[in-house]
């Protein structure tokens, strides 16, 4: 029985990091209304950044996280300003093609520079664990999940209580109204895309504590982010975390009870059920 507790707990912790990654997707879609198909590629790019810094500087990913998030913010800002901006309001398939091209370039750029081998980041506390009642929790997962929750909370406070966050929410709720009152929507969109990518950067950095970086991981992570966001409910910040936890736990249990290669079968099954029965997601608002 205790084995199950450990597995569920580990799934919850991993799921919180999934949730943070999905939050980046949700923020961008919720405001800019563009589905970021390069999401997993950006996450993996952040993982490689963390690996490079850990290798050359010996820096713990938890310490390089702000640097990587800032770098990804810049990437997102420029991406929106120079590429995505012209595709706002255009048909979905055109936006899809644009971001697909971007994802192909990032993915294969990583492959070209770093090769196909898995890259592992070694931290001192890799094999440590916390005892919590009957449960044994991996230290890395506890740190990663804690950071993910703290960042998600920070993001919530930013959108709720700062002027910039309020302005961005205004764009999402009522674009015309936002333009009428004189908000610089193009700048706000670029900032939002930047923020979404910074969140991705942070989640990638946390992810590398738990998983090795490989270019092939990117497509899986893009799909994973979609699944989490749809299950939790697009545009719901709490929903992204709940969706992440749900997927994290279902993956952990399926990996333990069946075989690890079957774990995403349940994620896709869950996605299909949610799409059909509650398309607004578990925490989304009914329209």
């Amino acid at each position: 029985m205790e084995v199950y507790l450990d597995i569920v707990a580990s799934g919850v912790l991993t799921g919180l990091v999934y949730g943070l990654m999905a939050l980046g997707l949700s923020v961008i879609f919720g405001v800019v209304r563009v589905v970021n198909f390069a999401h997993g590629e950006l996450t993996v790019a952040a993982m490689y950044m963390a690996w490079v810094m850990a290798g050359s500087l010996g820096a713990d990913p938890l310490l390089t996280l702000p640097v990587i998030a800032a770098a990804l913010f810049a990437v997102g800002y420029l991406l929106q300003r120079h590429l995505v901006e012209r595709f706002i309001g255009r048909p979905e398939h055109e936006q899809f093609m644009l971001l697909l091209a971007v994802s192909i370039i990032i993915l294969n750029g990583l492959l070209l520079v770093y090769g196909p081998d898995a890259r592992h980041v070694q931290v001192e506390y890799a094999y440590d664990s916390f005892e919590l009642g009957p449960m044994l929790l991996d230290t890395v997962r506890v740190y990663a999940a804690g950071a993910a929750v703290a960042l998600a909370l920070g993001l919530y406070l930013f959108f709720r209580f700062t002027d910039l966050g309020t302005a961005i929410r205004a764009c999402a709720d009522n674009l015309l109204g936002a333009q009428v009152v004189g908000l610089d929507v193009r700048r706000l969109y670029a900032l939002t895309f930047g923020i979404g990518c910074a969140v991705v950067g942070a989640s990638g950095t946390l992810m590398v504590l738990m998983r090795d970086a490989t270019p092939q991981l990117a497509v899986q992570l893009t799909l994973l982010a979609f699944i989490v966001v749809i299950i939790g409910g697009l545009g719901s910040m709490a929903g992204a975390l709940v969706g992440g936890v749900l997927i994290g736990v279902s993956e952990a249990l399926a990996g333990f009870l069946l075989t690890p290669s079957l774990k995403s079968l349940f994620s896709y099954g869950l996605l299909i059920l949610v799409l059909l029965l509650r398309p607004e997601g578990l925490m989304g608002k009914r329209t």
């Binding site: 644009l98 091209a101 971007v102 192909i104 294969n108 750029g109 990583l110 492959l111 070209l112 270019p215």
Partner: peptide, 15 residues
């Protein structure tokens, strides 16, 4: 002909 080189160019052309 390194792995990924072709796809990067392909991606750029697509873009």
């Amino acid at each position: 002909a390194a792995p990924g080189a072709k796809q990067v160019i392909y991606g750029l052309a697509l873009l």
